[in-house]
Computed example of a mutant assay.
Amino acid sequence: MGLVAEFDIPCEGLPLVGVAAAVPAATVTLELQFNHGDRPPFLVTVTGGSPTATERALADADDVAEYTLVGRAGETRRYQAMPAFSLEEQLGDHLDDLRGLEALATADAIIERIEVTGDGWIQTGWFADRETFDEFRTFWQRNGYFRLRRLTRDGEPEPPGDGLTDRQREALRTAYELGYFDIPRNASLEDVAAELGISASSVSERLRRAQTQLIEETVAPMWPPLLE
């Protein structure tokens, strides 16, 4: 069964990270056209922020040879940018296995969204199976650049998601706001239960189930599977 994952690749050497850092008020997303040789053009969508600051950042970026404003709609602008370097040239100082990067481009996976931030990329992707996802994860972890945000099976109603029910999410949020998770603790289970209008035992069960679900969707997938 396929998987849907959302994860961070916190690597400042990735394309357009400097542009995103220069316009922190904007949301920058990127598409790569891998069928255009070793320097695939960047299709850049920028929403919010100053258009002037964005275009100044594109003009000043070391990894952008030239760019063109393709169109705009409201606060969203679309650019095509030609890279100044191949991905191998750009990432050569950051990765220890460039051939592994090339292999990822042909894996049974679709990276459907790349959000560029001031310290790396946030990616959302679909993976044919767990083995394909593990190859992708292992490559970036080996190079020190991987943080899993969410992992779900395809076919879920809202992939990727955290898997929490509305009641579990409400219990977590209420417990957090009252100070139940503070150190030292500033609220008891009874306090959270009173706020929610349920019993302390029900609160305890919801919190345990919610925390287990979050661990299964975030921390647990980053470890090798246990031997059966």
Rank of each mutant, 00 (worst) to 15 (best):
V46D: 03
P221F: 11
D182N: 14
L32M: 10
T117V: 04
R169D: 14
L207G: 03
S199D: 12
I111D: 05
G48K: 07
T76P: 00
D108H: 12
A171F: 07
A26G: 03
E55C: 06
A73I: 10
M1N: 12
Q168L: 06
E205T: 15
P160Q: 02
E55N: 10
I215Y: 15
G118T: 02
I111G: 07
P159Y: 04
P221W: 07
P15T: 08
T45P: 05
R113G: 04
V64T: 05
L148E: 06
F85M: 10
L101D: 02
T27Q: 08
G100N: 02
I215L: 11
T174I: 13
T27Y: 01
A103R: 13
A53I: 12
L101H: 02
E66H: 04
R149K: 15
F127Y: 14
T174R: 11
T117I: 00
L32D: 09
A128H: 09
Y67S: 10
E135K: 11
R206G: 01
L14H: 10
T138R: 10
G2K: 05
T117N: 01
Q213F: 00
P184C: 11
D97C: 00
D96I: 02
H36Y: 14
V192C: 11
V44M: 07
W121G: 09
T132C: 09
V28Y: 04
R77V: 04
L87C: 01
D108G: 00
L87H: 07
D154K: 07
R113I: 00
Q168R: 12
H94S: 12
L148W: 03
T218F: 08
Q141W: 12
